[in-house]
Every structure is written in structure tokens, then in C-alpha cells.
Design a protein around this nucleic acid. Structure first.
Lengths: 147, 147
DNA sequence: CTTTAATGTAACCAATATAGTTACATTAAA
DNA sequence: TTTAATGTAACTATATTGGTTACATTAAAG
């Protein structure tokens, strides 16, 4: 299972974009319903990946790329797998005296890498801009009369 | 990250197929290099999903479907997400007073479901039969002279 | 019938990941 | 100088994973 850091990070970026960067970690935390330190921890990961920039003592979070150029894949890579890069865990230290134990990792590499690639390509097809557009669209529809 | 139960389960099925079902959990554990109880725990999940059948006191594991009809997706679903079914964790209990907090889960559902679907479809393209064929192929190539 | 050996499963344990929480140093604006 | 925000560390609770031991159940072999 992929942790909720990912969707929280999308939440952060949506708020940053909608408010033109004028948001604090306290404000974001109130929307996410968690602790400001949790938000700042995820912000740190987004900063290290070059998606946002912020400064101590200064209100405001600056997107480092156009919102239309930030995809779900960028966010996923920023907050999940910051070092490992692999979606699937392949068991190691198998018995090389056995043919299956000797070859299983290599035999699985191609199909598992391809599965990960397909998932990542799907994430790459959606920008944060379109997620925000969907949020605004849903909000406007609900804000209208219920007739 | 997806746990190694998945690749261990593939390992189990490969050994079952290659040995025509005449394998014990001790034998499999020696190839995987783990404890027999770990193997039996995963076997239990494969049984509950209808992929294999076995019986106390009896050596032998019976595939319940043709090996060519068992895909990596079948195995993945059997040993991962036995109840939840969702690859991504979406944070809940967000602040509905905020537009983003109110709509974020719905806005993410389509792209995340699609990403999961793409990954699963990729897994569905590879059968255990083809994994075993790859193992045999690699084994035969290496077994030959190194010339 | 008895012995043997295998599966099915429960009960722990250690290690790790996740998310929440508190605290505080650093920084810059008012 | 005061205020307030970020950056980060430390600690905790919880859940997951994988390893381990133990044992009841079962069936085959002798």
C-alpha cells in the first residue's frame, strides 16, 4: 500500500495553487486535519524534489514549476520511494542451488518493472492543475441550487 | 511498497509446477531460504483464493487452474490486498469547510483507480507459465558451456 | 494399530514504516 | 525588539511484515 503522504502532498499543492502560495503550514494542516509538523515534513520532501520552495519566517510557498507541469507522478516520486525507486519488493538470498532460487529475481524483473512503469505513466497523465480543476468543478456544482 | 509475499508466492507456484506438485513446504522453504511456516502461511492465502489445494498429512500441492491461466495479477490479488483492494491510501477526515478538504478524495478517485488498473493489467499480461519458461531458459543457457 | 511425517494455524517477537505530537532553533517581517 | 513562521529533531503509538516456535489435525506407511 502506498502511504497517504502522497494524497496529502497533492492536497498541499492544490491549496498552494488555489491560494497563490499564500498559505501557512497551520492553514494547510487545518484543511488536511492533521498536525502542522506533518505538513512541514511533507513540504520538506516536496522541496528536496524541487517542486516547491519556502523560507523560514516567511509566509508563502512558491511552486517551482508551472502547476500544469506538475504531475501526480512528480508528487509520487517526491514523497514515496525517495531512495528505493522500486514498487515491488523481491525476496533476496534465495538458494542458488535450486534453479528457481537462482533465477527468480531475474525472471521477475521485466514484468514487475513494466507493471510499475504502467502505473507511473498513468500518474504522469494527470496534472495537479487538472485535479484542482476537478475540485473547483465539483465545488461549483454543489454550491449551486440543489434543484 | 508491495511486500515480498508476492514474489515468494510466485516462487512457490513455480516450484509446484516444475515438480508436478510433488513438493513440501520444507522443500520450498529451502529454496526460498526462509521458514516452512512462512511458506505455509502464503500457501494458505493462495488456497483461499482458489489457486492451489493441499491437505494435511499429504505431500503435494495441486494447482486448481492451468498454470497458463494463472497470472501475476491472480497471485498479487491473492497475497496482497486480501480485503482492501486499494493500492493507494487516501487520507480521510479532511475539513469539509474547506473546498479542497471536501472534494479531494473524489477528485483523486479516477486518476488513482486508473493507475492501479494499469498496473494490474500489466501484471495480468504475464502468466506463471511464462515466468517458469523464463527461468528454464535462463537455466539452460547458463548450464551450457561458457564458450 | 502405531508410527511417522506433513499441513494448518495460532501465538509470539523483532524490525520497520507511518503518522501524530511536542519542542525548539532559525529566520525574517512588522 | 517582538512576533510568527519554517525546518527539523526526538519521541510515541500503531500497524505491517517476516521469522520463529509450537502443536493439533490428518493421512499414509509399516
Amino acid at each position: 500500500m502506498i502511504s497517504s503522504r502522497f494524497t496529502v502532498a497533492v492536497h498541499i499543492l492544490a491549496l498552494v495553487h488555489i491560494n497563490n502560495g499564500n498559505v501557512t503550514s497551520d492553514y494547510i494542516a487545518a484543511s488536511v486535519n492533521t498536525n502542522p509538523a506533518v505538513i512541514r515534513r511533507i513540504m520538506s520532501m516536496l522541496s528536496k524534489s524541487g517542486l516547491i520552495a519556502s523560507h523560514p519566517g516567511v509566509i508563502g510557498i512558491n511552486l517551482q514549476k508551472p502547476i500544469s507541469a506538475i504531475t501526480l507522478l512528480d508528487v509520487y516520486r517526491a514523497v514515496e520511494l525517495p531512495e528505493t525507486k522500486e514498487l515491488f519488493t523481491v525476496h533476496q538470498n534465495t538458494n542458488v542451488q535450486c534453479m528457481v532460487g537462482k533465477e527468480i529475481q531475474q525472471a521477475l524483473e521485466t514484468p514487475l518493472t513494466e507493471a510499475q512503469r504502467q502505473m507511473e505513466q498513468a500518474l504522469a497523465h494527470t496534472s495537479i492543475e487538472s485535479v484542482v480543476a476537478d475540485i473547483l468543478h465539483r465545488h461549483n456544482n454543489e454550491a449551486g441550487s440543489p434543484s
